[in-house]
Nucleic acid binder design. Sequence first.
RNA 1: GCUCGCGUGGCGAAACUGGUAAACGCAACGGUCUUUCAAACCGUCUCCCUCACGGAUUGCGGGUUCAAAUCCCGCCGCGAGCACCA
Length: 464
Amino acid sequence: MTQKIVTRFAPSPTGYLHIGGARTALFNWLFARHHGGTFLLRIEDTDRQRSTQGAIDAILAGLTWLGLEWDGDVVYQFSRAARHAEIARRLLEAGKAYYCYSSPAELEEMRIAAKAEGRPMRYDGRWRDRDPADAPAGIVPVVRLKAPQEGFTSLRDCVQGDVKVANQQLDDMVLLRSDGTPTYMLSVVVDDHDMGITHVIRGDDHLTNTFRQIQIYDAMGWTQPTFAHIPLIHGADGAKLSKRHGALAVDAYREMGYLPQALCNYLLRLGWSHGDDEIISRDQAIAWFSLDAIGKSPSRLDFAKLDHVNAHYMRETPDAELARLVAERLGAAETGRLERGMAGLKARAQNLKELAEHAAFYVAKRPLALHPKAEALLDPAARGHLAALGKLLREVDSWNHATLEACVREYATQHGMKLGAIAQPLRAALTGSVNSPGLFEVMEVLDKEETLGRISDVTAATSS
RNA sequence: GCUCGCGUGGCGAAACUGGUAAACGCAACGGUCUUUCAAACCGUCUCCCUCACGGAUUGCGGGUUCAAAUCCCGCCGCGAGCACCA
């Protein structure tokens, strides 16, 4: 029989869902879907000071936007504190954990001594075998794990391979704080066990924590899940990802005009590969995803490539849908022009932000604000030609790009001009810019009345 | 500092368990097309020697091997973890 796969994404709601978290969620989601398993969401909100409802909402919204639906109800870790404490009690009863009465001052001494000797901070285990009857009055104890002191704790990681650490490096970690609340190490293990998580796929910043977690699994006699620690994403300069590099909320990527499919596709390719494939649909990703194709080294975020991938997905998006998104961004009503002009617009933009900027002239109200370069093109001679051309265009009956092109070309030929000499001023008048989609397409989309109106806006200004 | 992990073109990467390094893609550059900007298409794209010929090259230095990106040792760089945070 095959094991039913269960993965989870377990963010702490102390900040927003950032790009690295999104990738972790994506990998968990893909792995679960690939195996027909379950993808669970657990909010690790045990830090009551730093957890906020706003962050929870942003995480849920971010995952939803990305299309990474989780199965079942969201698990809130804080609500399970009693269960975590129960496990600590069981370890205590089994002699696998003990009460530690060391005061903060004592711990501070150990810290200072360790630092002076160039050792990592390790609790020295002074209450490990001591009779609780010796407990000093007035100190509420913490519960510590009686961790193995010799040998090694080893981990077979799906991405990182075999990794081990000497148990001497690990001290007796706190399981339950003096106020009775569980620590992260305990909560994670208990929750992953209770939720039936079979595969823990998370950032490799947790790799060394895993050794401590394994000690808890061992103490409880629970079977460990399979671990896969994926490399973190770095900034373009190879350094740790920061806000400056793009360690932004997923929300910010949405704001910058990236499509969720594009972001997922890009994030998937960052550190994972499948032959020559670059553009990978969601269905293909589910069919192809595997943990062993994940690289071990961190990769750098590259906005140029994200733009390229995004441009691809934008071109695949129906014009009506893009028109709706653009209208929303511009805060303008769609009159049909955006959709009709979209074919020409979307080939010229890499993200929705650019697309909206390029599309703005279609919904702009007359008279248009002219870009300085457009203004410069509209010298008196050019305005004169536009006025003359406007008269010809008024006579055009069937208003489509073919007849319009014929009309404008004819005008240029008759006046011994290259097409560009009339086309560029015309573009300036119609779009307020020096570049745009094909001019005749623009005229057709604008319609006759609007085209003539925009021309007269610039020609009337000169004659008066 | 200690422990763990990672270093292949400007970037993402490929190279199946040692067997032609850099396939494929992004960016960049040159060209075609053209009413602008794009798109599309063709070409160049690790480094050195003006081109070619040739040589070097997988962070650096050694080693094992007929053969090393891949295995071993030592450095260097980057990242992560080292709390009664998560």
